[in-house]
């Protein structure tokens, strides 16, 4: 008890001493309280209630029932699995494509800056336009993808949007296209920070290009890529726009959901507020675990945070 009192006194005297610092952060924290803290607490309360369309005004606290409902529904596990596949496949390709392109661009090359600009461009475009454009391109009869597949590769048209696997793959391809520039820029930055002498020394020792890549470039790139990859995992896990817009709200027959789009559907289409709140708390928990692991890993490799 006495410890608490002294801590409070400590803070109060600090409030006086560093008044200016507190003034400076106040506007930002008022906004944060409004858009993050309050909604988050509200959401916790909501997740313990039975609020839905029929109990919109006369809702009551029902304890952990909504959480039980989340974990006992088989849908949850299949969607969780899809979310994991979605995240892993996306991030894998983002990193592989991004790093490969960065390696190609990281040398004297004719037209290098033009290529770099063109390759980052997907990132400057709003996601909803990208998603809708790709949705048009995946159209069965008139879409550009099938057009190209038939004309130049002699492959039969693919049912992109009307089958579960097709729609999921279409969303994946769209998001891979959308996400590689970020990893490319990070990798380019990383490559430029590797000292040139290392390569010169390796050449003197007779190491070939492949050996240089494996023993110098990739290990030195790793600490730079790990934070980016972790962020990539969080964003991809939570990426609502692409899956929702490309599959037009989870079509066909709600078979192309990831967790966030499923939550959105529960809120805005089924009005199951309590259930959706519980589900989003579960998502938050999963991300929290991933992030904690990521921070530990970053500490292990960098020690700079």
């Amino acid at each position: 008890m006495a410890a608490i009192v002294t801590t409070v006194q400590d803070y109060l005297s600090d409030l006086k001493k560093n008044r200016l610092a507190y003034y400076y952060i106040t506007p930002a924290f008022l906004v944060m309280g409004f858009v993050i803290l309050y909604p988050f607490l509200y959401n916790i309360v909501l997740s313990l209630t039975n609020m839905n369309l029929t109990h919109f005004r006369n809702w009551r606290i029902i304890g952990l029932e909504q959480y039980v409902r989340v974990f006992s529904s088989p849908d949850f596990y299949s969607i969780l699995l899809k979310t994991i596949i979605w995240t892993v496949v996306n991030v894998f390709f983002h990193v592989t494509i991004g790093v490969s392109l960065a390696l190609l661009l990281n040398r004297p090359l004719w037209g290098r800056s033009i290529f770099r600009t063109l390759l980052i461009l997907p990132w400057a475009v709003p996601q909803y336009i990208t998603a809708l454009t790709w949705r048009g391109m995946f159209q069965y009869r008139y879409g550009a993808i099938n057009l190209i597949l038939v004309k130049y590769f002699g492959i039969h048209q693919i049912q992109w949007l009307s089958t579960p696997l097709g729609a999921f793959s279409a969303a994946l391809i769209t998001n891979i296209w959308l996400g590689f520039p970020f990893m490319m820029v990070i990798a380019l930055g990383g490559l430029q920070s590797i000292p040139q002498e290392l390569y010169e020394a390796a050449e003197v020792d007779g190491a070939g290009r492949w050996q240089q890549l494996r023993n110098i470039t990739l290990p030195l790139l790793k600490p730079i890529m790990i934070p980016a990859i972790s962020l990539g995992i969080i964003w991809t896990f939570n990426n609502f726009n692409v899956i929702w817009l490309v599959s037009n709200g989870g079509q066909p027959a709600d078979s192309t959901h990831i967790l966030v789009s499923y939550v959105y559907k529960a809120v805005f289409n089924y009005y199951r507020y309590g259930y959706a709140a519980a589900l989003s708390m579960v998502i938050f928990g999963i991300l929290l675990i991933i992030s904690v692991r990521f921070i530990k890993q970053t500490k292990g490799t960098k020690g700079a945070y």
Binding site: I36, P39, F40, N43, N238, V260, V263, V267, I283, F284
Partner: peptide, 8 residues
């Protein structure tokens, strides 16, 4: 996630 804070 943004979906958590949107409704409130």
């Amino acid at each position: 996630p943004g979906q958590v804070t949107m409704l409130p």
